[in-house]
Simulated scan of single mutants.
Amino acid sequence: MEEITVLDEAQCWNLLSESVMGRLALSVDGEPEIFPINAYAHDGKILFRTGEGTKLSEIAVNGRVAFETDGFTSKIGWSVVAKGRARILTSTHEIMDADQLPLKPWVPTLKMNYVEIDVEEISGRRFKFGAEPDRYPV
């Protein structure tokens, strides 16, 4: 196994679909912000729930976002980054469909809003951990 392996789209989606937590990156008042979220990925989309606040208001203004998730063991790690356009679900039909998905808040707070990211670009890498090579070989 190479130290760094670029993952193909199918591998990225497989890892993304098995992941339940990641980080949402967006721009708040022109400044980058990152928020931890639990999410559900399927059919080329990532869905998450949120309450009223910064994430929701910024997505309403600028829907361009990135989502990153990763995982690791003691020997390997991986990271997947998905970029796309987020939109707040508003139709009754979409919300009812989203309510059927296995996406529940992790903390005991109301998260009444569903946000869907339509993924336009996805990339990922797998890393093999090991000791740093000798910087000054003899």
Score class of each variant (00 low, 15 high):
3 E>I: 12
5 T>Q: 14
8 D>L: 09
8 D>W: 09
9 E>V: 14
11 Q>N: 03
13 W>A: 00
14 N>Y: 14
16 L>Y: 00
16 L>C: 06
19 S>A: 07
20 V>Q: 06
23 R>F: 11
27 S>D: 08
27 S>R: 09
27 S>Y: 12
29 D>R: 10
31 E>P: 00
33 E>M: 10
33 E>H: 12
36 P>G: 12
36 P>Y: 11
36 P>Q: 11
36 P>K: 13
39 A>V: 11
41 A>K: 02
44 G>Q: 04
46 I>N: 03
46 I>K: 01
47 L>R: 06
47 L>Y: 12
49 R>Q: 05
52 E>H: 07
56 L>T: 00
56 L>C: 02
57 S>N: 11
59 I>Y: 04
64 R>A: 09
65 V>C: 07
67 F>V: 15
67 F>T: 00
70 D>W: 06
70 D>C: 07
73 T>P: 05
78 W>G: 04
78 W>Y: 06
79 S>E: 09
79 S>W: 08
80 V>T: 01
82 A>L: 12
84 G>H: 04
87 R>H: 08
89 L>H: 01
91 S>R: 01
92 T>L: 15
95 I>R: 13
95 I>A: 03
99 D>F: 05
100 Q>R: 14
103 L>Q: 04
112 M>I: 10
112 M>L: 14
114 Y>M: 01
114 Y>L: 02
115 V>M: 03
119 V>G: 05
120 E>S: 10
123 S>T: 11
125 R>Y: 04
127 F>V: 12
128 K>C: 12
129 F>K: 08
130 G>R: 08
130 G>T: 05
131 A>W: 04
131 A>S: 07
133 P>V: 10
138 V>C: 12
